[in-house]
Simulated scan of single mutants.
Amino acid sequence: MGQKSGVSGILEMRKLLLRAGLGESTLEEQLGEGQQAYADALYLLTRMRFTPEESCGYWSEILQHMESLNLTLGRDVGLRLALCDYFMNLHPRMREPVIVEVQVLLQKERSALVDELTGLYNRRYFNDAIQREVERFKRFGHRFSLVMLDVDHFKRFNDSYGHLVGDDALQTVASVLRDTARTSDHVVRYGGEEFALILPHTDAEQALAASERLRQAMERRPVQVQKDQSVPLTISLGAATFPEDAINARDLVARSDEALYEAKRIRNSACSYAEKNREFPRAPVGLTVLFHSPEHEPEAVRVVNISFGGLLCQTPAAILPGTRVEVVLPGDYPGQSGLRVGCRSLRLERDTESGPYEIALSFEGIGEDVRRALVRLVELDQGVDG
């Protein structure tokens, strides 16, 4: 059989997954693009996480193993049996696998990822889903947005009508979000009366428009508090976009929360994040980069923070404002050569006479490849396991 390349290989993989019992809707929702599709496929079959590069190699070897088993036994052993034998005997990664009907497994997993009251995804699902979107950006440059929303004056509502009616109100909000969101969006009950939506392939302007649609939809859906009485319920929403507003998942949540806080000052409104006086979000790091400049020998320099606009560095040597330098970014693993990025020194400061210089550098004309490299660097520095 062997592994086909490119689009034909992924189509062949989908056919095998369907024959293995995975539904079309599951594949549409869970499979990524390119090599990521192989990593997603192995996760669906084993619940083990592998890198896209590892997954391509494993998938090819599993297909070869399945073909060998078919010839030896004279029958089609199927993908699942070949995969189980491969990961237990040929490339041991499983110690004590348990055989269970896939629907039973999916039902148990769903119950662990779904909020019981609203039927929306829960915080555990959210943490995994937002990291998957970050991974998609790192591989394909696909932007996405996060909308956090809160029910206005919900404590007052609960105090006035009771907690059972409060539960009905939360279910109404969940229904509005489900009805208004796209099928590709991830709708989550984040906690209490706070909800979140992860919007793939969505920029800042689109995220704000989506937030406004949600706000208006909620205005049109009053909550029934008694048999003959309904009262309006409003929501406030804050949106932030990756990577324009943050270059890791944790900061994106924080920026969306800041936008939500601004919206709640007004109530029944939608706001997008805008960092005052800054074009690019910064992330604190402890990286070391290599400097090249006409006036200095190549030098390792400590980076204090990093953004899509540039670097703030500490160095024992003075690099005067206006000086052009080339920065060599670290690779994804030790020994890997990183990208070379042109920079210009903007500011030079020194707190003490014997202390290091603090230098602000501006990137010159970076592209999407550098943006993705910067996201990976921040995650590696902060210990995020992609």
Score class of each variant (00 low, 15 high):
3 Q>K: 06
5 S>W: 01
17 L>G: 03
19 R>T: 07
20 A>R: 04
21 G>P: 04
24 E>I: 02
24 E>T: 04
37 A>I: 00
40 D>S: 04
44 L>N: 00
45 L>T: 04
53 E>D: 09
55 S>W: 01
67 E>K: 11
74 G>F: 10
76 D>W: 07
78 G>R: 08
80 R>Y: 12
80 R>G: 08
82 A>L: 09
85 D>W: 14
91 H>L: 05
94 M>P: 00
97 P>T: 06
98 V>A: 07
98 V>S: 05
100 V>K: 14
104 V>P: 00
115 D>G: 05
134 V>C: 06
149 L>P: 01
149 L>I: 11
159 D>K: 07
161 Y>F: 14
163 H>T: 12
164 L>P: 09
170 L>H: 03
183 T>C: 07
189 R>S: 07
191 G>F: 01
196 A>W: 03
206 Q>N: 11
208 L>R: 10
210 A>V: 11
210 A>Q: 14
211 S>Q: 13
212 E>M: 09
212 E>W: 01
214 L>M: 14
225 V>S: 02
233 L>E: 02
234 T>F: 03
235 I>S: 01
236 S>R: 02
237 L>N: 10
241 T>G: 05
241 T>E: 03
251 D>L: 13
254 A>N: 12
254 A>E: 06
258 E>N: 15
261 Y>F: 15
264 K>Q: 14
278 R>E: 15
280 F>L: 12
283 A>M: 09
291 F>T: 08
291 F>K: 01
300 A>G: 14
303 V>I: 12
317 A>I: 15
317 A>P: 03
331 G>N: 10
336 Q>L: 09
338 G>D: 05
349 E>P: 01
349 E>D: 14
362 S>I: 03
373 A>Y: 11
385 D>N: 10
